[in-house]
């Protein structure tokens, strides 16, 4: 008798789940604290960043500052445009992380738009926000914007991707380096955005993404003496006050941009430098 060997029906392949990590100094790292918290309806363990993660992120950002701010404006514009390309290339993953459907599609579109818009500003903002000043004397005098330095960004809870991108893009455009706290409740799109950055010629440390408890990390970032500015767009009034109280220690610039496209979103994170030189022979 010949036995018929029946193959059991093929079970659906088990998902390969992604382990979500912080993005610090160009590397995807677990939080040094080893802590996680559950997001996405409890399905995903997101890293719960710590004081030391923020410290490492600020150190990485500082280290990256001279290189990034020293790039030509043309080059920075190309790199930011490259982020848009990489974001667009991963559109499927982002749309899915953002809950699929037209709203998610639109959010990715707008995030790409924002990057493209600010990419184009890199080599133009000096012409619009810089001046040549006709002083009353034999001097050539001009003013031009320079990046403020290390910018702390508290990204809004939502839109989880667009909220991060449209605050991050103007800061990057001006030549700053960034430590961002991504959306606390929906951190995944923000963390995965790190993968777009990692593949877009953005030098290590220029953007650092940390997930976790905003109430825990806000004070670390706002009090850090090597952070030059904070964008508190996503903070409520009491958080803003907390940041303001801590910001005085090193006279941090506090910016409250609303995320709409504007030149001031860039220049509010920049310093104006004025140079004088005699005109003679």
């Amino acid at each position: 008798m010949s036995a018929v060997r029946s193959t059991p029906p093929k079970a659906p392949e088990l998902d390969i789940r992604k382990t979500y990590k912080l993005y610090i100094d160009g590397k995807f790292v677990r939080t040094e604290s080893g802590r996680t918290y559950q997001v996405a309806g409890g399905r995903v363990n997101a890293p719960r960043g710590s004081r030391k993660d923020v410290r490492n992120a600020v150190a990485a950002a500082r280290k990256a500052f001279d290189g990034w701010s020293g790039r030509t404006a043309y080059n920075r514009g190309q790199v930011i445009y490259r982020i848009a390309e990489m974001l667009d290339a991963r559109r499927g993953e982002f749309v899915s992380l953002l809950g699929k459907g037209p709203a998610a599609e639109r959010e990715v579109d707008q995030a790409v738009d924002s990057l493209v818009w600010y990419a184009g500003w890199c080599d133009k903002l000096h012409a619009v926000a810089g001046t040549v000043n006709p002083v009353a004397g034999p001097y050539f005098n001009f003013t031009f914007p320079e990046p403020t330095g290390v910018v702390g960004l508290i990204a809004p809870e939502e839109p989880a991707l667009l909220g991060l991108v449209r605050h991050l893009a103007p800061a990057l455009c001006g030549g700053n380096v960034i430590v961002a706290l991504v959306s606390e409740s929906q951190p995944l799109a923000g963390l995965v955005f790190g993968e777009a950055l990692a593949t877009s010629d953005v030098p290590a440390g220029v953007v650092n993404l940390v997930s976790g408890s905003h109430s825990e990390l806000l004070a670390i970032l706002a009090g850090h003496m090597d952070v030059n500015a904070i964008d508190v767009a996503a903070c409520n009034d009491s958080e803003v006050k907390q940041v303001q109280l801590l910001a005085e220690a090193n006279v941090k610039r506090i910016v409250r941009s609303d995320g709409t496209h504007s030149l001031e979103a860039i220049t509010s994170l920049m310093e104006m430098k004025t140079v004088w030189h005699p005109i003679g022979h």
């Binding site: 002083v135 009353a136 004397g137 006279v251 430098k273 004025t274 140079v275 030189h277």
Partner: peptide, 24 residues
Amino acid sequence: AGVVWANTYNRFDPTSPFGGYKES
């Protein structure tokens, strides 16, 4: 520094922005 004077110093003019970086 917010103001850089090259081959001169302490010049001021209404048309010329003045102000600091960092704790200035």
